[in-house]
Simulated scan of single mutants.
Amino acid sequence: MTVTLDAPERRNAQTPSMWAALERIATTVPAGVRVVVLRGAGPAFSAGLDRGMLAPGGIEGEPSLLGMAADGPQALAEQIAGYQRGFTAWRECPALVVAAVQGHAIGAGFQLALAADLRVVAADVRFAMAEVSLGLVPDLGGTAALTRLVGPSRALELCLTGRPVGVEEAVATGLASLAVDPADLDATVEDLVAAVLSAPEDTVSEILGLFRGIESRDDAAQLRVEREAQGRILHARATQMRS
Score class of each variant (00 low, 15 high):
157 E>H: 08
174 G>S: 10
75 A>Q: 09
130 A>H: 02
27 T>Y: 09
4 T>W: 00
223 L>I: 06
82 G>K: 10
195 A>Y: 13
82 G>Q: 05
159 C>R: 15
229 A>C: 11
117 D>T: 00
119 R>D: 07
231 G>A: 14
10 R>L: 03
102 Q>G: 10
21 A>S: 13
2 T>A: 11
231 G>D: 06
231 G>T: 11
233 I>V: 02
238 A>H: 10
193 V>P: 07
6 D>K: 07
106 I>H: 14
191 D>C: 13
102 Q>K: 05
200 P>Y: 02
202 D>P: 05
221 A>S: 12
37 V>I: 03
243 S>A: 13
84 Q>A: 10
92 E>R: 10
180 V>S: 01
61 G>P: 11
18 M>A: 08
21 A>I: 14
14 Q>E: 11
166 G>Y: 00
186 D>R: 13
9 E>F: 09
182 P>L: 11
76 L>F: 13
139 D>C: 13
26 A>L: 04
145 A>E: 03
61 G>V: 02
147 T>L: 04
117 D>C: 04
37 V>K: 09
97 V>A: 01
223 L>W: 12
170 A>C: 07
160 L>E: 11
203 T>Q: 07
4 T>F: 01
27 T>V: 04
72 G>H: 03
168 E>F: 03
72 G>S: 02
226 E>Q: 10
2 T>M: 13
37 V>R: 02
83 Y>R: 14
9 E>M: 06
86 G>S: 15
188 T>C: 11
47 A>Q: 09
235 H>N: 15
26 A>N: 01
77 A>E: 14
146 L>P: 06
156 L>S: 15
223 L>G: 04
221 A>I: 06
119 R>W: 13
191 D>I: 05
140 L>Y: 05
113 A>Y: 02
237 R>Q: 15
197 L>P: 07
97 V>K: 00
153 S>G: 13
61 G>K: 01
178 L>P: 15
225 V>I: 06
146 L>Q: 00
150 V>H: 00
232 R>T: 04
193 V>R: 13
173 T>P: 03
211 F>C: 09
6 D>A: 03
149 L>D: 07
87 F>H: 12
218 D>P: 15
19 W>R: 12
159 C>P: 08
